[in-house]
Simulated scan of single mutants.
Amino acid sequence: MYLPSKVKIVEVGPRDGLQNEKQFIDTAVKIELVDRLSAAGFPNVEAASFVSPKWVPQMADGTEVMRGIRRRPGTVYSALTPNLRGFEAALAAGIDEVVIFGAASEAFSQRNINCSIDESLVRFEPVAQAAKAAGIRLRGSISCALACPYQGETPIASAVNVAQRLLAMGCDEIDVADTIGTGTARRVYDVMRAVTEVVDPARVSGHFHDTYGQALANILAAMQAGITIFHSSVAGLGGCPYAKGATGNVATEDVLYMLHGMGIETGVDLDAVADIGHWISGQLGRKSSSRAGSALAARKAAAA
């Protein structure tokens, strides 16, 4: 069984994890969350989103968050930028990487942003060009790469097509996302192998939601397909507002526990992340969704 010796974890909790929280989270809490994650050793933290506050009010303080954080040398701070206005705001706030996104499902694209896949990708071209001109790292995300809440299973060819289009725009990294968390290991392996026929595996990442409890198995399958970059969210925060019933991203603590248990290096401190998960869950008034995080917290409490 092929396993990599090292994996890069992209922590998406501050953006993807918090964006759907109904009650506005204080900017100081968001800043502290990013700072704690930076100190835990993450090489990449998705810290903010520069979208219209009308659509995502939770992310309205992106500029304040970016200006308030303590930047750790070696950590890349990312933000979602769906248009030029968002890109310009992110650039002014000192972002290291901007993220554009397109669906592999026609039905999801139409329901989500009221246009076709082709039209959505054309909209991102000015952002991609501006990022390249400014020397800013560019990441592209493919939502519903495995399945869609409206049309069911996504054709693999569609995910490959979007990956090719994002690569042509100059994306440095391309995320293959199981947005609604319905994927299983064999399907993940097949999709990843198909995408990596047109994109260097070193530039492809897996973004898995844990709706059906398959995310860890899917990460293992993706690693066997040559993928060494994965997204996760501390305490399992997050979800998808356009996919009814879709739960949060896979919990970072669970991913780290699995990888470290297999001798795979991440450079991230699991105990520190477990503490962060316990802390942010308390800030949100609920228990962590991470099984490993909860077990580590219980063990620490018993030893106290």
Score class of each variant (00 low, 15 high):
A130K: 15
L146G: 11
V51E: 00
F50H: 06
A157G: 14
L91V: 08
Q164S: 14
Q151M: 10
E125K: 15
Q58W: 11
I113H: 07
V51R: 10
E88P: 05
S120D: 04
D96A: 03
V127I: 04
V99M: 13
L146C: 09
P155E: 02
V99W: 14
A89R: 15
D96N: 11
A90T: 10
E119I: 00
D118Q: 11
A128T: 05
V127L: 00
V162T: 13
F87N: 05
G102W: 04
K54N: 08
Q151H: 12
T75Y: 10
Y77V: 03
L80G: 07
T81W: 07
S52I: 01
I142P: 11
E97G: 09
I156V: 14
M169D: 02
P73W: 03
E97Q: 13
A79C: 13
G86T: 01
P155N: 11
G86E: 02
A48K: 07
V99F: 15
I136Y: 02
A79K: 05
M59C: 04
P82E: 00
T63D: 10
F108L: 02
N112V: 03
A93E: 01
Q110H: 08
L121V: 05
R67L: 11
A93M: 03
R85D: 03
V160P: 12
M169W: 14
D96S: 05
A89W: 05
L121G: 07
A60D: 03
L121N: 06
E153R: 15
E97Y: 05
A128R: 12
R111W: 00
T75P: 03
A131E: 01
L146W: 09
M66F: 13
L91W: 15
E64W: 14
A147F: 03
I100T: 11
S105V: 02
F108E: 02
P57T: 02
T63E: 13
P53V: 00
P82T: 04
A147N: 12
T154N: 07
N114I: 00
V122R: 15
V122N: 05
